[in-house]
Design a protein around this nucleic acid. Sequence first.
RNA 1: GGGCUCAUAGCUCAGUUGGAUAGAGCAACGGAUUUCUAAUCCGUAGGUCGUAGGUUCGAAUCCUACUGGGCCUGCCA
Length: 659
Amino acid sequence: MQILKPIRQRFRTVLEKLLDDPALVESSLERIVPSRDPSLADYQANIAMPLQKVLGKPPLEIAQSVVSGLDLSDICQSVSIAGAGYINLRLSPSWLAAQLEAAYRDEHLAVTKVDAPKTIVIDYSSPNVAKPMHVGHIRSTVIGAAIAHVLRFLGHKVITDNHLGDWGTQFGMIIYGYKNFCDQEAYKKHPVAELSRIYRKVQAISGYQESLAQTPKLEQAVEFARKRVEQVQTKLAAAPADKKIAKELATAERQVTTAIEELQSNHKKIEESQQDTLLMAESDTHPAIYEKVLAETAALHHGDIGNLKLWNEFLPNCRQEIDTIYRRLNVQFDHWYGESFYHEMLGAVVEDLFAKNLAVQSDGALCVFLDGFDSPMIVRKQDGAYLYATTDIATAMFREREFSPDISLYVVDHRQSDHFKKLFAVLEKIGLGHTDFRHISFGTVMGTDGKPFKTRSGSTVGLESMLDEAVARAMEVVCNPERLTGVGIQMEDQEKEQIAQVVGLGAIKYADLAHNRTSDYVFDMDKMVRLEGNTSAYIQYSYARIRSILRKAQEKGYDPSGWADSSLQLTEPSELALALHLVRFEEMLHQSMQEYTPNLITEYLYDLAKLFSSFYDQCSVLSASNANEVSSRLKLSSVVAKTLRVGLDLLGIGVVERM
RNA sequence: GGGCUCAUAGCUCAGUUGGAUAGAGCAACGGAUUUCUAAUCCGUAGGUCGUAGGUUCGAAUCCUACUGGGCCUGCCA
C-alpha cells in the first residue's frame, strides 16, 4: 500500500514541465508529506514557498499553476490551496476503500517488497556469557530483533548475528573459581547454578580487593580536587569579574563533590564486604585474585589444554542460561559467531594492519592512530593480548567474506559510540568502505535513582526474575477473577497463564521500544507493567475486542466469506480516520527504518488502537443500520485486527484472542 | 583540556528530518454506561520548546555563544 509514491508520481509530471533543474524537482517531491493537522488535510505539498525565489513569482501563484496541471481525481477527493501556499490533499473514500481491500486479502497487508533488496547484517544482544544478563542487554536484544523483523518484512536480506562475549576475562574468573571454590556435588547437580555462584564469588573478592586498592587513589583525587578549588579561588580573588574563572570554580567544586561521593561509595562497598566474614577469609587466602584471573584468561588464550577443556565444558552450560532467556523473549539469531570464533584470526589481522603501516608501535602496544581522534585504537596490548577492537575488526572482515553486506548495523548502547567511530574509520582504511556501517546506539539503561545500571556494582536485577515479575503483575491485572466476571469471560488456568505471559513480556518489550531509541531509558518496573495509557496491553486489548466482535458476528450468522465479498463503505468520520491510518502502515514502516527507530511503530500502533476505540464508541458494528454496513464494518475491523497483530509481531509482541 | 549527547505541560515522553494554532499518556477537573469486553470514549485546564543571538518566506528542529545534566576520552567491553 503505497500512498506517497503514486501521488508524487503525479506531481512529478507537472513539476518537470515547470522546473528545469531535476534536483529541484526531487527536493520538491520530498516536500509532499503527511499533514500534521488532520483537520486541514491528509497530505500536503509544501512546494510553492521555497520556489518563490527560483521562479520569481508569489507562492500562491506557483501553487495555482501546479494544481491546475495536476490530475489526482482518482486518488483525492479534493486538492486545495491554503495559507502561505500549501497544497492540501484529501484522499477519496473510494480510493481508501480499494487500498483496504488489498490489505484485507493479503497476509502481508499489501505491503510491497522493496525494489532493490539490501543485504543487511545486524549485530545485536551480544551479551557476555557467564556474566549474568541484566536489564541493559534487553534493550539491544529487543530493538535489534524488531529492526531485523521489519527489514525482513520489507524484503531485505537480513542476517542476524549474536556476537557473544565468550572469550573474555569472565571465563578466567570461572576457571579460577572452578579450580578454587567449586562444590563438585552441586556442580554435578546444577552446573549452571554452581558456575553462576562461583562467578559471583570471584567477582565479589575481586571487587573488594579492587575497592581497597582504589581507596588511596580516590583519596588523592579528593585532595587534588580540593587543591584545585583553592587555586582557582585565589585566581578569582585576583580577578573577581572574570566569568570564565567563576565558571572554572564551579566546575572544580563539582569535581570535589563527585570525588567525595565516589570515595564514600567506595567505603560503603568495603564496609559491606567486611560484614561477610567468609568473604574476608577467602580474600585473605586469595590475594591479588584479579591478576590470577587474568593469568587464567591468558593461559586459555594461549591454548592451555586444561583451561581449554574447562572452557569447552563451561560454555554449553553458560549458553543454556541465556538460551532460556531468548526462548522466553522469543528471539532468534541466524548466527552465533562469538568472540572465541575469531580468536585464531586476530594475529593475522594485526599483522596485516602492521604490514599496511596502519598500526604502529606505541608504548609497547600496537595502535592505529586516526585523524580527528585524540586517542588511538589499540589493537594489541603491551602484554601481547588482543582487545575487543581487534575482534571487531576481524568480525567485520569475516562478515565481508561471508555475507558481503551493503549495510552493517551494531545495536549497542551509546557509551560505545567513540569506539565505533574509530572502528568504522579503521574499516574504511582497510577497504570495507563500501559497506554502510552504522552504530545503532541507544540510551543507557538507568536505575530509578537516575544512575546507570552497572554490572560491576553487583546488585543487578536478574533478568529471569524480572520477566517472572512482569508476568505475575500481568496476571494480577488482566486475569483477576473480579475483572473477568465483570466482562463475562470464563477461562481455565492454562489460558490465564498464557495471557499473562503474552501481556507481561509484551509490556517489557513495548516499554523498551516505545522510547526514542537515543534517549536514556529509566528502568521502572511499575511503569513498564502498568496496563493503561501507551502500553502494549492497551493495544492487545483492542485486538481482543475486535476478535470478540468477529466471533459474535459469526454466532449471529455473519460468515467471514460473506463480509469478504461485501464492499467497504467509509462514511463516518471515525471510519475514514481509521482507514487513512491503516493505509499508512507501509509508509510508517519505511519511515521507522530510515533512522532505525522502532518507536514510530509503537506510536503508530497505539494511535491505531486509539482510533479503533473511538470508532468502536461511535459506530456499532453488529448493530449497524443494515446488513451491508455490518459487513463493511466487520471487514474494516478485520483489517485493524490484522494490522495490530502483524505490527505487534514485528516488535516481537504477541496477541491473545481474549483478555 | 578535547569530543559526543541531552534540556519540550506538574510527571513520563512524542514531535514525520525546516512547515500552518507544538502533541500524547499519567495526574487534576467535568461529562458519557440496561456495553458489539468501561483496561473505554468525549470534553476542560495545563507551554517563554533551558537562555541570548543568527540563518530565511517560515525554527522546538540548522549555526554560534552561554547555562545546566549525562556519557566517552591509550592498553575493560
